[in-house]
């Protein structure tokens, strides 16, 4: 393989195309962007939760349903589940070595993250604009 002289990737690695340069940078940046968004949003949300401890159904609904709050919560949910599935992906890639089981777990985790994110978003939208349940 005269062509590969001086290359850092092996011919097999090149053919498989699974090297760290395939999508690592995008993952890295997304993980940090969502982290930056989550830091203030999480503090804001936890403070909101604390101040609504023991709140009635109407009070809790008014808090979550307020348009500004609902938007911030929706943004938090998006960042939260994106961040979570990116992090869990790395954990799975680090500890699960079988190709098949790794693939199944990754699909499961990413699918569940999408499912719960969508469920939560629907709930917030219903609280905010859906009228009485």
């Amino acid at each position: 393989m005269a062509d590969d002289k001086g290359r850092l990737r092996s011919p097999l690695g090149h053919a498989r195309g699974l090297g760290s340069a395939r999508s690592g940078t995008r993952h890295y940046i997304a993980q940090r962007w969502t982290a930056l968004a989550l830091a203030p949003l999480a503090i804001w949300f936890v403070f909101g939760l604390i101040s609504h401890l023991g709140a009635s159904y109407a009070q809790a609904g008014a808090w979550i349903g307020n348009p500004i709050n609902a938007v911030l919560i929706l943004l938090m949910l998006g960042a939260l589940f994106h961040h979570a599935q990116l992090g869990l992906q790395v954990v799975i890639e680090d500890y699960v070595h079988g190709h098949g089981s790794k693939l199944v777990l990754l699909i499961l985790v990413k699918g569940l993250a999408l499912f719960f994110a969508t469920l939560a978003i629907l709930a917030v939208l219903r609280i905010s604009i859906g009228g009485p349940a």
Binding site: Y57, F81, G87, V91, L119, A120, A123, V124, A133
Partner: peptide, 30 residues
């Protein structure tokens, strides 16, 4: 850091269920 990350990911399901219970009405919220 990694362990708390995994725990928070699982714990976020609790948050989702709380929001769903609020969306589903007074009885489920209580």
């Amino acid at each position: 850091h990694r362990a708390t990350g995994v725990a928070l990911a699982i714990g976020s399901i609790l948050l989702v269920l709380w929001l769903v219970s609020l969306a589903a009405g007074p009885a489920s919220f209580e």
